[in-house]
Design a protein around this nucleic acid. Structure first.
Lengths: 249, 249
DNA sequence: GAGGTCTGATTGTCCGGACATAAGGTGGGG
DNA sequence: CCCCACCTTATGTCCGGACAATCAGACCTC
């Protein structure tokens, strides 16, 4: 089992980066590059710890973080092995902008509306504010290669964020929120489908009655405060949600 | 901060259940029941460990598991507090059957087809078998309250599982797999929408052209082997995917 | 040869301690 | 009165060790 020693890991104790994190990053990179073959054993923790001059708990913490990411599988009495399957992107709270950018689609955004309005019943309930309270409403059209992809409608609590129209055209909403110091924590989503109305059809260049993919999402920060409520409509002919999910053991 | 002591936790050292797990379950139950108010501090780890007669690492392990579930938030220098938001079900690999059952819908299944067939190009690629190799094909109609909800088409590698027609009508496919000792690990999913064909419309009692929600999913076990490829179609008028997702910190 | 049994390997759990780091409040100085 | 340095508090990281539980394979018995 310990016949081949193709890779050498090393840690820098003078770095402020935690040791377990340094190791987990090196392991992940080695897996990504295929230097750690799928299915291959990782070698036992004790020996790995000794070789690196680390304690076993530290090595375990590094390994555990990759197990949580779905890259490794541990089996008692057997060892830790690299998972075979092609783990890509385990469904994260990403904005459509980032998705398109990652796919090399050069996304563009057109801000259709950016106003302060009294909250309707649905938005008020989602954001946890009284009905009629003032909220920020942003409506955007997201394009890829000049073609409309989706119509995005977002409600935000008033005063949460100082939205700049220019920034909104150049990046996603989540990135702006994170940049403003908001720690996104969780989101409640609902994905469905419906036929396009006349107005939606015109906006998205689809015929009336064409199938559209819809998503409603309420996002919370780590204090439990709702920071965004979105109602989005995607062209089903051009877009589908792709993601990977892990089974919680 | 430590003024109120409304709850007392306790662990049983003679139990085979790990101590950290006993504690995390009690904490989770207390949060669920509202005995630990959202936003309230949990009290520092050292003191909690001392009160329970546990070591700090054990207490940390218990807390960490709830942080991973999204129920708690830790802040250095501040403490650990219960998250405000309503965390429900953090998107898991659940079968439609379980979803409907949990919603009190009394699901029923009609097996339309259950044969061994040569794999088509798509199914072969997804399952990682040569095209034309024999695979098991299962087609089911899922009903709730006697109304059709979805048409489920699953391909399985030959010999993976001994599917019983009767069992298929009474439970979900994933439950059967788990019962057969298969450890589900991850799944790659794609969710989209399209207009109903004549055949689909008839099966699902929807007019031709009605919007349908589609999902394709390939599921892998912990050895990286593909154990299932499904192409499912849901009535958009009756069903939407609802889930909660956490932001990986 | 088929079956159960022992044994080695490896992860799982747990302990008690140590120091580092960040957040928040407090007091002093400008 | 405001701002900065300091202190307190709590989590974050790390160590070295101990024993238990489980798996796979070799071994032995029938």
């Amino acid at each position: 089992m310990a016949k081949d020693r193709p890779l050498q890991f090393s840690v820098d104790r003078s770095s402020p980066v935690p040791l377990y994190f340094q190791l987990s990053q090196q392991l992940e990179a080695a897996i990504e590059r295929g230097e750690l073959a799928p299915g291959s054993l990782l070698g036992n923790e004790i020996e790995l710890a000794g070789r690196l001059g680390l304690s076993r708990p530290t090595v375990r913490q590094a390994i555990q973080s990759l197990v949580d990411k779905g890259l490794l599988v541990r089996r008692r009495g057997v060892g830790t092995q690299v998972v075979h399957s092609q783990v890509k992107r385990p469904l994260e709270l990403s904005s459509l902008y980032d998705d398109l950018e990652a796919a090399g689609q050069r996304p563009a955004t057109r801000v259709l509306r950016h106003t302060a309005e009294p909250a309707g019943a649905e938005a008020a309930a989602a954001l946890g504010v009284p009905e009629g309270a003032e909220v920020v409403l942003v409506e955007r059209l997201r394009l890829a290669h000049g073609e409309p992809m989706a119509h995005l409608r977002n409600h935000l609590p008033a005063g949460l964020l100082d939205l700049d129209g220019g920034a909104l055209e150049e990046t996603g909403l989540y990135r702006l929120m994170r940049a403003a110091g908001i720690t996104l924590h969780s989101a409640r989503q609902s994905v469905g489908a419906r036929a396009a109305t006349a107005e939606e059809g015109e906006r998205l260049a689809e015929p009336v009655g064409a199938p559209l993919l819809t998503m409603e999402r309420t996002t919370f920060d780590d204090t439990g405060r709702a920071v965004e409520f979105g109602s989005h409509v995607y062209r089903a002919s051009r877009y589908a949600f792709e993601f990977q999910l892990l089974v919680r053991p």
